[in-house]
Design a protein around this nucleic acid. Structure first.
Length: 136
DNA sequence: CTATCCCCTG
DNA sequence: CAGGGGATAG
């Protein structure tokens, strides 16, 4: 079965891939004997990771709109960002890992994507989030 | 019918 | 996070 160590490892893996395929998971967790159960559990973990991830990004995007941010390019997620802090606590609690720069770039892209749609009030159409998920 | 994803709950 | 429903792709 999967242990707490595997969960921790999964969270760090999330910094590199938001949508890992089964093949990637199996190669990354070579010490795990995969079964239908463990596989779906890992898939579920990443699904939950994404939900928290996008939920936080959406929250900050809405705050930016309320704060009257004009230029989309003014939105940048760096290591000093509040958004980064929230995500780091969630996926890297012990803070013993250096989050890859690529993750910051991806998150910045996602934040701008959410911002653009929310600002134009296009967030009423059903499935508007899926458009963003495809970008990332 | 199986695998995945999203969405909502607890 | 885990469960479960609804939707979708192969």
């Amino acid at each position: 079965g999967l242990t707490a160590q595997h969960l921790k490892k999964s969270k760090l893996m999330f910094f590199f891939t938001r949508y890992p395929c089964v093949t990637t998971l199996k190669s990354y967790f070579s010490d795990v004997q995969f079964s239908r159960s463990t596989t779906s559990q890992l898939i579920k973990w990443f699904s939950n990771f994404r939900e928290f991830y996008y939920m936080q990004i959406e929250r900050f995007a809405r705050e930016a709109v309320c704060d009257g941010v004009e230029e989309t390019t003014d939105l940048v997620v760096d290591r000093d960002s509040e958004l980064f802090h929230v995500l780091n606590i969630h996926y890297n609690k012990s803070n013993d890992f250096q989050i890859p720069q690529r993750f910051l770039e991806v998150t910045t892209t996602a934040l701008r994507e959410f911002f653009g749609i929310v600002r134009c009030n296009n967030d009423l159409e059903t499935g508007w989030k899926k458009i963003i998920y495809k970008v990332i």
